[in-house]
Design a protein around this nucleic acid. Sequence first.
DNA 1: AGTTTCATCACCCAATCATGTGATATTACC
DNA 2: GGTAATATCACATGATTGGGTGATGAAACT
Lengths: 223, 223
Amino acid sequence: MTLNFIKPMTQTSIKIVVYEDNPDLRESLSVLLAGSIGFELIGAFVNCEQVAKQIVELKPDVVLMDIDMPVANGLKGLKIIKQLAPQVNVVMFTVFEDNENIFEAICSGAVGYLLKRTPPVKLLEAIQEANNGGAPMTSSIARKVLQMLPTQQKVTENNDYKLTERESEILNLLVKGNSYKMIADKCSISIDTVRSHIKKIYDKLHVHSQTEAVAKAIHERIV
Amino acid sequence: MTLNFIKPMTQTSIKIVVYEDNPDLRESLSVLLAGSIGFELIGAFVNCEQVAKQIVELKPDVVLMDIDMPVANGLKGLKIIKQLAPQVNVVMFTVFEDNENIFEAICSGAVGYLLKRTPPVKLLEAIQEANNGGAPMTSSIARKVLQMLPTQQKVTENNDYKLTERESEILNLLVKGNSYKMIADKCSISIDTVRSHIKKIYDKLHVHSQTEAVAKAIHERIV
DNA sequence: AGTTTCATCACCCAATCATGTGATATTACC
DNA sequence: GGTAATATCACATGATTGGGTGATGAAACT
């Protein structure tokens, strides 16, 4: 990645919009992007107040989004963007490294999450990656994202109800919305046998109704 | 990251075990790690047959794990490692880039996922990151991981059932395992009213039983 | 003033579910 | 050979649920 201050307008430039309340940082980003081949800064704003209008008009490829901004913050802006133009790749650019913000940003559709101490070269790389369908983030951020996923450990932990194979099978069918009769059909057993199995499942799960069993099964990933 | 062929034994070296069936690649990795300060290759094996014994004896900090190996593959090995020694950081090192393998590896507790075409320098960086609590992966892998998370889009999309406030409240109580009678009590309304609300909920959700409603509610909505 | 939406309640009937108390056959293990 | 776990089935009883039909009042919007 080379910085180049003679910037030709190419058709393949990545069009970028920046949301950042700090004037110095905003200026730095402008200079960086203006001076880099393949990048085109088409807008830079202090907050997300006008985000809807701006995104629709400017049609950026990538948005670099600060989180902590006065009036209308970056998470709010992100959500609006993903509603109006879900194809836009939004990269969060912030000092926050807490699970809360990361989780909300990722769940709201951000594709990348960078910290402000990211060096300029890495920042340009990240924008390119975001534009190419990647999800740029540091490995410490990635670790936090992984912790949001269901892990094998959790699964093992919760499979401790020691359901038999048949019982698991029937619980699965139950979760999928099958009635006793449908389960009996699918398993080729009598409805009384289904009953019998389900009674044992309730015992093992310490529940007393289909609803509770289904909720527990889904929440604890027994299914 | 510099390669250094005069390798002093420092106490802070990252202890690494490699599982890789290709002899050439295994040799390359050995040379790379042997020649790099801060890295100590303490074992290299062709498959995961003896993984349990090896991990317990060698106590590595980081494991570099191929997936496609004869007899005992890397995903199997990963699971055994995470059971016996969950503190070990396992980085998958493979040619596979499909969702299936990535998903299984991440859910089984792998902290990193690298492709075999990763350049040596990046590989060493990744091992360090894994050792320092990071989750090294390329941004394209990261994007795939993100897709495994529930997104705001999905939530918005599915909130489209337009339940009224009361209906949402009752659905929530249903999901928590309450019977009609219990809901009636908690909401201080008659059981017939509960019925009435639930009937409307079923209509809107296109389901015909508590079980289905609960499963649907949990899988794609509020709860 | 009329219409729509929402929350509330009532009654009926058939289907389904929860629970209890059995029994039988198979497999596996000591 | 005896025991335990599993899977199968039966019968009975009462509670709960699902669907239909309809009514009332309040709020909101036209």
